[in-house]
């Protein structure tokens, strides 16, 4: 997964994860904005970037214990398992899947992996509808960064296809009766 040259991977590893420091660290108080002391006390909970957390945790002995970001916790997992399509990933976790892959190994119960997969499967429908929707603004809004990228690619090929179908002196068009069907008319009216 980790790719040294991938910009998005770098951005993902810059996401903050909550960590608990296991040892007293002299002169590291600046890591905790609320600390008055120069030294960082053991047991402090601080949010630090993933790349820092991973390297501190892999030391022997580990300096921190990594906790799950809140969107991977039980409360949010329940929402995601119930209906992932209602969640606004853009607000909650831009890099939900990518970060999830990294933090899944810190999950003791091992349920994050299943949630990630389940969420991805459920939200695939949103990608489909975003790629054909005329109202791109509202359908693209709740997608995470990688989902947006994929939906945009799908939408552009969809546009190319419909442009091809429309082209020419006598394009193949839908029958009037079908086009005037209530559902379709409404979709077109919502466009304007």
């Amino acid at each position: 997964m980790s790719n040294y040259l991938s910009i998005s991977d770098i951005l993902v590893s810059n996401e903050k994860v909550p960590c608990k420091f296991l040892h007293d660290l002299p002169k590291m108080g600046f890591l905790d904005p609320s600390a008055a002391d120069d030294d960082l006390k053991a047991g402090t909970n601080v949010e630090i970037p993933l790349w820092l957390a991973e390297s501190l945790q892999s030391r022997r002995p580990p300096l921190v214990s990594v906790d799950l970001p809140k969107i991977y916790k039980d409360a949010y997992r329940e929402i995601l398992n119930a209906d992932a399509c209602t969640v606004d990933m853009h607000k909650l976790g831009q890099y939900f899947y990518e970060l999830g892959c990294y933090v899944a190994k810190h999950d003791i119960k091992g349920e994050v992996a299943a949630t990630l997969e389940n969420t991805f499967k459920q939200r695939f429908r949103m990608l489909l509808s975003a790629s054909v929707s005329t109202d791109t603004l509202s359908t693209m809004q709740p997608l995470s960064a990688s989902e947006r990228k994929r939906a945009a690619a799908a939408a552009s090929s969809e546009n190319a296809l419909s442009a091809w179908l429309q082209r020419g002196d006598c394009p193949l068009t839908t029958a009037n009766m079908v086009a005037n069907h209530r559902k379709r008319k409404r979709a077109e009216m919502e466009m304007f």
Partner: peptide, 8 residues
């Protein structure tokens, strides 16, 4: 990718 990397 999600399946393989997130699995412990």
């Amino acid at each position: 990718r999600i399946r393989t990397t997130s699995k412990r």
